[in-house]
Amino acid sequence: MENKQTIFFKNKPTIISSYSIAGPKESYSVFAPYFDLVLKDDLWDCDSYELAERKMLEHVIFNAIERAKLQPKEIDALICGDLLNQIISSSFAARRFDVTYIGLFGACSTMAESLAVGACLVDAGYFDNVACATASHFSSVERQFRMPLELGNQRPPTAQWTVTGGGCSVLSNKGIGPQITMATFGKVVDFNVTDANNMGAAMAPSAMTTMLVHFQNTKTTPDDYDLIVTGDLGKLGAEILIDLMEYNGYKLGQNYIDCGHCIYTNEQNTFMGGSGCGCSAVMLNSYILQKMREKVYNKVLFIATGALLSTTSSFQGESIPGIAHAIVLENKR
């Protein structure tokens, strides 16, 4: 029954530091006090939103490394991804650091994917310190995937709002902090959802698939975790996931939250909530890791989901494939 999707780490790589950044709209979030830096202006003195996204990414990487009391040259690898074509934000941000760079594309699942890959490299002993980062920007993503910013159109009720923000975690083979004990890499799952304005529904099946495999392989149930976090399914996607899991015999209860669903307040008219790489990255690197350090949560299942579509595939009428990667964060007993 057991398959090789789940990795059990022997040396348990530690998240020794984290840093998060968020945009002006996110500053109204109930989690805003946990964000390390909140921008007042989402252009951040840059000439374009793409440059602002890159600057956010550079900023989180730099500060997370500094907070770990390391020099950039002590980082053995930077594992990074984003939503823009050819992951330009990541690659161009990496240009500033004299560090081995591994670029990833996992759409909105990038945070979990980079941590899982980073944990493998550290656990195996190849690398000592690894920085895992991602960021997204509402305006750059809107321009790329949807319509011009100033176009006076209405957003459909199932739409989600791309989070302006980013986060970086530094993984190390020594030091103190929450440890990554397991990781489950996901498979690409497609239930033939074609509506690019309903990402939650497109990604929920992939979250379910990864979650089921993870629970089976690790012989755990939802109740074994203090907190189960999904990335950016949004309100609708989270409800669908709860239904799908119940259909498969697992009950997601009070300990389940979705970053996209809870990052914005109801008054902000984001409809289904947040999305984008930044969504789960901001939440993980602020609230969740902070609460783990405070020992409020001791065992967290973090599943970030991604919708692997492009504008070309959407226009050609293709359905939206989803991916979900899971990691388990635990405090040392």
């Binding site: 009720p157 239930f191 669908i240 239904d243």
Partner: peptide, 16 residues
């Protein structure tokens, strides 16, 4: 195909 059709019908019913 049957699974996808069922899922999409279900999603349609869930949309607020």
């Amino acid at each position: 195909n049957e699974r996808n059709a069922r899922y999409n019908a279900y999603v349609e019913s869930k949309i607020p």
